[in-house]
Design a protein around this nucleic acid. Structure first.
Lengths: 224, 224
DNA sequence: GACCGGCGTTAAGGATCCGTCAAGATTCCG
DNA sequence: CGGAATCTTGACGGATCCTTAACGCCGGTC
């Protein structure tokens, strides 16, 4: 069940939103001012925030910025102000959507659904394992059968790019641009040399690689 | 540079948006109706779509649903209709934001920034499945009965174009122009060779294809 | 029933791309 | 300054891919 934090100083609106949201299956928490909102958010990190800009104690934009320092939850801003600059400021401060009062509850719910549809963020793993070797992205270390493997900086850059996108085909241009810079996109020769090097260090059978695969004419692919 | 596809039947608005967006560093492509929009999107997948709901040839919501079958790019809907149900329908059909005409360009740009912030060059994890094989557009990978299928670059280009327009008839000229370039629109022979190749790799019974269908005299069609 | 255009299939040739090796150039570090 | 590690460059055989041509099949037409 998704947790929603509603921040507004209008007690009536707060109550109405709580009831409506709970009826639609959200776990609702409320706050009436900016300070309470930040405390509530840190105590019980919400999956989504509905934030009124007109708060008694502090600017709504300030709440937004504080929140954005550690939370990446989607924020939908409510406001009575129709001005274009208000909207631009709020959106650029980190808000994900902005609707003006008065608004329809149906529209609010639809916008919440749209925001939550984008929400499920994947925390990337710090290590990637295969049957034969293991790559620790945080420590910048590779082990094979428990033994550490020495990689040169260039070798590591290529391997990291491939391993961070498991199963995805990475074009030669992407690798060359990432590792050597955009000016080297034609030097496909480098890649051949370094892929051979990587396979010699990581693959059991260099002739039949099982994890560092070639896609002729396009690029390479890492298969976990 | 992020690619934005703008779909609207109002030539004036189209031109104004193109100029404004280009001035802000986006690569802009435009389409005046739903069909052109879907072709343009599959030919050059955009990072973001601005879609007018009032199109001459098909319902804007239908365009949205077709696009959502393979693309996860954020979609901002433009509309002249203020009704709550219109907004709810569009948002639930897969749109990420909805603004009504007339709108301020500054607000539009701010909303685009907010959307792109959420989907930073999203590696489209979109896949299209059939009963026998599955096409992972983001990873550029095809699996059949769980086993990966090796496709050459040309084979992939053709399959990608067809799969990104499920159920839609693609003419031979469109395929040839997209894969080999506009100068090869007469080389229908290439297509026969490669369609046979694709069917041999993907279809159970190449004589009776179930997903890669021929439309004699016109072109080909992908049926999910 | 013969002709004909469009399609599917196959295979061979040539062009392109890849893996490999090794030697020279460069950078790094004591 | 000198040695070691790393990077660059070029060349070669082999693998992969694209092109091209030929042939059989099917459906429509006269």
């Amino acid at each position: 069940m998704t947790g929603v934090l509603v921040v507004d100083d209008d007690q009536h609106l707060l109550k109405a939103l709580r009831i409506t949201l709970q009826a639609h299956g959200y776990a609702v928490e409320t706050a009436a001012d900016g300070e309470a909102a930040l405390i509530a958010a840190s105590r019980n990190p919400p999956g989504l925030v509905v934030l009124d800009l007109g708060l008694p104690d502090m600017d709504g934009a300030a709440v937004l910025r504080e929140l954005r320092r550690w939370s990446s939850a989607p924020v939908l801003v409510l406001s009575a102000r129709h001005g274009s600059s208000d909207k631009v400021d709020a959106l650029d401060a980190g808000a994900d959507d902005y609707i003006t009062k008065p608004f329809g509850l149906e529209e609010l719910l639809a916008r919440l659904r749209a925001l939550l549809r984008r929400a499920p963020e994947t925390a990337e793993p710090s290590t990637v394992d295969t049957a034969e070797f293991s790559v620790d992205l945080g420590r910048r270390m590779v082990t094979r059968n428990g033994e550490p493997v020495r990689l040169t900086p260039t070798e590591w850059s290529i391997l990291e790019l491939l391993v961070r996108n498991p199963g995805k085909l990475i074009t030669q241009q992407q690798i060359l641009a990432t590792v050597w810079g955009p000016a080297y996109e034609k030097e496909a020769n480098y890649l051949r040399v370094y892929m051979a090097q990587l396979r010699r260090k990581l693959e059991a059978d260099t002739g039949n690689p099982r994890h560092l695969l070639t896609e002729a004419g396009i690029g390479y692919r890492f298969r976990p």
